[in-house]
Amino acid sequence: MTVSKRFRWSAVLDHSILIMGALLMILPVVMLLQMASTTDVHTMKNGPGLVFGDQLPLNFQKAMFKADGFTGANTGVRMLYNSMILGFGFAIGKIVVGMMAAYAIVYFRLRFATLAFWVIFTTLLLPLEVRILPSYEIVQKLGMLNTYQGLIIPLIASATATFFFRQFFRAIPEELVEAARIDGAGPIKFFVDILVPLSRTMIAAMFIIMFIYGWNQYLWPTMITTDEGMYTLVRGIKQITQVNEGTNLPEYGRSNLLSIIAILPPVLIVIFFQRWFVKGLTESDK
């Protein structure tokens, strides 16, 4: 090895490939943003360009407060609110339900533990998409169409979080529960005092993954919400593109900005909580 830094062609190549990759990921979104900064007339004539305009505030105003449809209920603000409820509700619901079930399976002597395990883990085999129609019918029968419960609970019916916490609990040293039992902690105390605080990073990682997953749901909200006041951002995009399709002057600025608003919260989470996000992703999918 030489001490002085040599100019290396291979390093140039490496960086070029990486820069191209990064541009591939970023440019499309920059393009959406650019289009949202010009007038719709300009966009319709020229498409995306290199120069940013001054229309962002106006388009933002439209994106957040204008509504389509008959009821006028699906403003950007309303959809943002619904997306938040779906994201938080799904993530919290899934983690609470999953942790409890995993705790019961790992830390209790249960006669039917193996049966419970299989009943729960079979759900990992079939994604919601393959049973989407009967699920819809059942939600309809239960009168849960256009409700937050109907939106959230069926999505929780797969055991990914349970599986994840089961793996994590099993990796916790055996002696910890033994020490706690000698210290006089019962099952509830052990769960609250020891297990939950011990799982903090795991909960955070799982929360991030689940929040993004819930926020980005598309097919299920599309089927279950017909009431415009219940639309989420991701579901609302479909309506806007359809409305754009039928008009002479599509609202590019508004729809593109709404798309950006729709991806902003999860994207910010990924960027700012990168370590937990990567941990949650790589450890939950195994």
Partner: peptide, 18 residues
Amino acid sequence: RTLLMWAYAVAPPVAGVI
């Protein structure tokens, strides 16, 4: 790394819009 992974959070329909 950040530039290459952030798009994980992009919802599929938004990718469709793109």
